[in-house]
Design a protein around this nucleic acid. Structure first.
Length: 115
DNA sequence: TACGTGACGGCGA
DNA sequence: GTCGCCGCCACGT
């Protein structure tokens, strides 16, 4: 399988894709803290590519350990449409870590991760 | 090959 | 405070 990726989703030829770099950055977000898509993009060396980060989250393999739920929009809101299952799931995971979610929104001023 | 779409962000009205 | 527009990249049709 020389043309396929490893189980972790990383190519074997030592050429991690931007997508994988993004996942790596998200894994650095500590428990109980959050980051915005733009912030993750910047830390991944992709300034201005917040939308790309959003896509990367949607492409996460099922069962991955990447704490995708710690990534929010720049205004602190949960990106997924309110009322959806994903939205509820994310809100629940954040609450479990002590991150207060009020009206689908998090106080970035208090919980924003500062590397 | 071209076009539409999407877990975004910043700015102006 | 809300709404719309544009820019950015990757992928499916």
């Amino acid at each position: 399988m020389a043309h396929s990726a490893s189980e972790d989703g990383f190519p074997e030829n030592g050429t991690p894709s931007r997508e994988q770099i993004v996942w790596q950055v998200v894994c650095m977000i500590p428990e109980g803290r959050v980051a915005s898509y733009g912030q993750v993009a910047e830390l991944a060396g992709l300034p201005g590519l917040a939308r790309f980060v959003g896509r990367a989250m949607g492409r996460l393999p099922e069962g991955s350990e990447v704490p995708w739920y710690r990534v929010l929009r720049s205004d602190g809101r949960i990106a997924m449409p309110a009322g959806t299952e994903g939205h509820e799931h994310q809100r629940r995971l954040l609450s479990a870590e002590g991150v207060k979610v009020t009206d689908g929104r998090v106080a970035m001023k208090l919980y924003r991760w500062r590397p």
